[in-house]
Amino acid sequence: MRLVNDKLFRERPDGAVRLIGGYCAGCERVHFPQGDTCPYCSLSECTESELGPRATLWLFTSVLRPPPGYRGQVPFGFGIVELEQGLRVVTRLTEPDLAKLHRGMTMKLVISPLHTAEDGERVTTYAFAPEPTV
């Protein structure tokens, strides 16, 4: 199994999924993806900060046809979620049916299959899924 990008997210041994963001001690703000340099104050001493797994849905649409360079299934959900740490991230959504999505709903970070490469290796990415209400 291969992560589409191993600098963006990780699955912990206990199965918990987190995004890998950055934290700036200078301005005390977090950002994603992690960079050495803070996108707000330009201080270059940022450290890693794990983000997620909960978020609320802010904006969403559905991608109906495969975009350039994409080999996975369509349709797929696409949107922006606000993480519990307060920042907003563009992401895939596991739910492509817009009738099942609404602004403000609780979402959870998951690892989601993307496609299977020529050599048979499964490629995965991070995505946000609607949190089942109990």
Partner: peptide, 29 residues
């Protein structure tokens, strides 16, 4: 067609995040 832009890194295309009209759609929403 949908413009393949070098603005997007290859992994973003692979992950389906290089969809220009989808960003426009979010703004519309």
């Amino acid at each position: 067609g949908i413009i393949r832009s070098s603005f997007f890194e290859p992994w973003r295309e692979e992950a389906g995040l290089a969809v220009t009209p989808a960003y426009f759609a979010l703004r519309a929403q």
